[in-house]
Amino acid sequence: MSEAAMKAGERRHEKFEGLVERAQRYPPVPTAIAHPCDEVSLQSAVEAARLKLIVPILVGPASRIAEVAAQGKLDISPFEVVDAAHSHDSAAKAVGLVRAGRAEALMKGSLHTDELMGEVVSREAGLRTARRVSHCFIMDVPAYQSALIVTDAAVNIAPTLSDKIDIVQNGIDLAHALGVSDVRVAILSAMETVNPGVPSTVEAAALCKMAERGQITGGVLDGPLALDNAISPQAAAIKKIVSPVAGRANMLVVPDLEAGNMLAKCMSFLSGADAAGIVLGARVPVILTSRADVLITRLASCAVAQLVAAARRADAAAALH
């Protein structure tokens, strides 16, 4: 970090910068950007393209996109623009580019998340797979030793046990795509013991047994765990919880959307964490960013999508052999 940055109280985002550097080892991923009609979303596309994370296809009202580019002094001349009438049409046409095989990722522009996700999960023309669609935050928490995956805090409101199987597997697969070989999954609740009166503790125990029986693969699960026992070795030791996960989790599975939303925002606003966002379980990764995100967070979200796309290409190639 530069001396000027230190004086200004800025911090390096080492975990996110590492994600960007890792993603740059792979070819940029063709990405349909739905309705990039404000400076934040268009700047994100331009900068992500400059860093060779994505090849943007800008989908939205062409005149409006050109106006925003001119106002922000952003050069969009290298990018394809697909004209659309309005935000809903932008979402539909962006999803159509994926279905046509022209894009390997989707990115939210200046439209509502519901508009884009509505097209993604449409039964007729969407991007559904056999997996449940779920969201993962990749959290860069300054005081924690590794990036933390938090799931699901944005899509599934009150997931069932069946939903949570896919939510956990989506998160584990994401961790592998990010280069994490030792995926330690904490299934969170308000306590670390199974209590029939608290359904999330029963579901946590069931998920752990499913992992033991090979129904969930690629990670080590433990739960139920309270948050302190999941991330603090001292708290885990005091409670005499001994497992490969307790005190050193790198993936946190929350009971429901409300708990996940509160956890992620507590990390962001009380711990100074940044949160990259990605939706998994569809045919391609979906990049969800917020206008409040700093640029490195938006770029990290693009890097995550690029790494997921690269992992899927590798899996497809391996399947052919």
Rank of each mutant, 00 (worst) to 15 (best):
N170R: 06
G214P: 10
L161C: 00
A85W: 09
V304T: 09
M191A: 15
V121T: 05
D182L: 04
A177N: 10
P28D: 02
G277E: 10
M6K: 15
D173T: 11
A153K: 10
G126T: 06
V29N: 10
R298K: 08
L53T: 04
G223M: 09
Q234N: 07
E3S: 03
G60Y: 09
I216H: 06
P36E: 05
V59N: 00
G219N: 12
Q234Y: 12
E3K: 14
Y144H: 14
E104S: 14
A62Q: 10
G179M: 02
V253N: 09
V29W: 02
R213P: 00
A130F: 09
P159R: 09
V150N: 13
S162T: 11
L299A: 07
V253G: 06
M262L: 15
I278F: 07
V68I: 14
L280C: 01
I138P: 00
A69P: 08
V20K: 05
N229A: 13
G197Y: 12
A85I: 03
D152S: 05
S268H: 13
K209I: 05
S41N: 04
G9N: 08
A303V: 03
D166Q: 02
D89M: 08
I187G: 03
C136E: 06
E67V: 00
I231K: 05
I296H: 08
D315C: 00
Q306H: 00
I241R: 12
L127P: 03
L207H: 12
Q306R: 15
L116M: 09
G179F: 00
A264F: 13
S243Q: 14
R50G: 07
S189C: 13
M117Q: 04
L270T: 11
K15H: 14
V68R: 06
K15T: 07
P233W: 13
T193L: 08
L148E: 05
V180Q: 11
E115R: 11
K93M: 11
S122I: 07
A147D: 00
A292I: 08
L188M: 09
V120W: 03
R102H: 13
R184E: 04
A125Y: 15
K7C: 02
G118T: 11
A230G: 06
R184S: 08
A316F: 01
